[in-house]
Amino acid sequence: MLKFVKNHMESIDGIANYPMLSLLIFFVFFVLLFWWVFTSSKEHIKEMGELPLDNDYNNKP
């Protein structure tokens, strides 16, 4: 079974590009996430952090 999969994967043209593409997407996603975290306002982060403890928000129908 494994031999079949290996032979099948080798027959696909450009298969070596997929791991590099997935690594690039992963890297870009986390770079953008870190950029968003470091540039977001402290007030917004504090507001979002206190949201679960806000009684007015939890009691809304």
Rank of each mutant, 00 (worst) to 15 (best):
V37Y: 07
I45V: 10
L2R: 09
I25W: 15
F29Y: 09
Y18F: 13
H44M: 15
V28H: 02
M9P: 00
M48L: 10
V28G: 01
S22R: 08
L23E: 06
V37S: 03
L51I: 03
N55L: 14
E47M: 14
W35K: 03
K46G: 02
V31I: 14
G14A: 01
W36L: 12
V31F: 07
L32P: 00
I25V: 15
F27Y: 14
S11M: 06
K42L: 06
L24S: 13
L24E: 08
L21N: 07
K46Q: 12
E43G: 07
L51G: 01
D13C: 06
F4D: 04
L32A: 01
F34P: 00
G14Q: 01
S11K: 08
L23S: 06
L51A: 12
A16N: 12
T39N: 08
E47C: 09
V5A: 07
K6T: 03
N55I: 15
S11C: 03
E10T: 04
I45H: 05
I12Q: 03
I25Y: 15
W36K: 10
V28M: 07
V31K: 04
F27V: 11
M9F: 05
N55H: 15
L33R: 03
N7G: 10
W36Y: 14
K46R: 12
D56F: 14
L53M: 12
K3Q: 14
F27S: 07
S11V: 01
D13I: 08
N55Y: 11
Y18W: 13
S41E: 09
S22Y: 14
I25S: 11
P19R: 01
W36G: 03
L21A: 10
P19N: 01
P52V: 02
P19I: 02
L32N: 06
I25M: 12
F34L: 15
F34M: 09
V31E: 06
S41K: 07
I12K: 05
M20D: 12
E47Y: 11
G14V: 01
W35S: 01
T39P: 00
F38P: 00
M48D: 03
K42R: 11
L21T: 13
M1F: 13
E47S: 11
G49M: 12
D54L: 03
V31G: 01
A16D: 15
L24W: 08
W35G: 00
G14D: 01
E47I: 14
N7L: 04
H44R: 14
E50F: 08
N17H: 09
G49R: 14
I45W: 11
L24A: 09
F30K: 02
H8F: 15
K3W: 08
H44G: 10
F38M: 11
D13F: 08
F26M: 08
G49K: 13
S11G: 06
V37W: 05
Y18G: 02
M1Y: 12
D54K: 05
I45S: 07
K3E: 12
M9T: 04
E50I: 04
K3P: 00
F29S: 09
P52M: 03
F4C: 01
N17P: 01
D13W: 08
L32T: 01
M20H: 12
L51D: 03
L23A: 08
